[in-house]
Design a protein around this nucleic acid. Structure first.
Lengths: 132, 132
DNA sequence: TTTTACTTTAAAATCGTTCTAAACTACTTG
DNA sequence: CAAGTAGTTTAGAACGATTTTAAAGTAAAA
């Protein structure tokens, strides 16, 4: 399925701008990125785009499940092109994130989901720090 | 150990402002809060404090391990008075966080920590959504 | 004490992100 | 294909959380 079809399937009009971003993000490679990093990649690809459009686009892509936003206490939103359930190592010093595939983690025991709620995904974060 | 001693032990001068905040936060009750919520509690306690001081203080307290900051993609920093390793349910719609005690989660298998790094804490986040 | 280093403060600045409203464009319908 | 309309993009203004500034204040050391 090409990117135009992916956008259509997600209920998004395949505009010129969304196609430029889809061509960068939806290439099957797992990446963590911020709006600013994406803007640099757009510029490097010989295109340009208003930062407002980049934010709009990221929000739409995220809401459609084309990308994920990572839970992070950094001041800049971090997105992930890996939309499968998976986990992360986090170096809190540098903010570096490293993917952990889902099958590398196994939960023996999970707590009961609160009354009236459904499980909507489990994320394991392993904080790491450089050895001295 | 009283709060003055706790601050001293953490390497922080027990100033008037830090004592006010310590009296609110270090009462043994587990709470999630933002700088704004804390400011309201300070005001309710009949005190007042510059917002810059509140941020300074939260940063110092966090760096000393007196409180924790929660990994969250919300635009406001969320802190936690529970400094023991534990986990959370997160309702992404509302942002509500519910504590999960560490012994309610058991990991059968953890990935190998990357070369040159040490494990610095594991956090499990279970995203939940309201049943329809 | 006196000194020194650290802390607090109000106000300004900064930074990421969102809003606004006008111009534009993809899609629908006739 | 033409015209309409609903959704999109844009630059720039606005916003909200947080940090910086620089001056005044305070705790601890000498």
């Amino acid at each position: 399925m090409n990117n135009k079809e992916k956008l259509r399937k997600a209920g998004l009009r395949p505009t010129k701008q969304r196609m430029i971003i889809a061509d960068i993000l939806l290439d099957g490679i797992n990446r963590h990125f911020t709006a600013e990093i994406l803007q640099n990649e757009i510029n490097s690809s010989g295109n340009s785009m208003s930062i407002a459009t980049i934010y709009n686009c990221l929000k739409k892509f995220r809401n459609c499940g084309l990308i994920k936003q990572i839970e992070s206490s950094k001041d800049t939103a971090i997105f992930d092109t890996n939309i499968n359930q998976h986990h992360h190592f986090l170096d809190e010093e540098t903010g570096e994130l490293i993917d952990i595939e889902n099958d590398e983690v196994n939960l023996r025991k999970l707590p009961e989901i609160p009354q009236g709620y459904l499980n909507n995904g489990v994320e394991v974060l392993i904080k790491i720090k450089k050895q001295i």
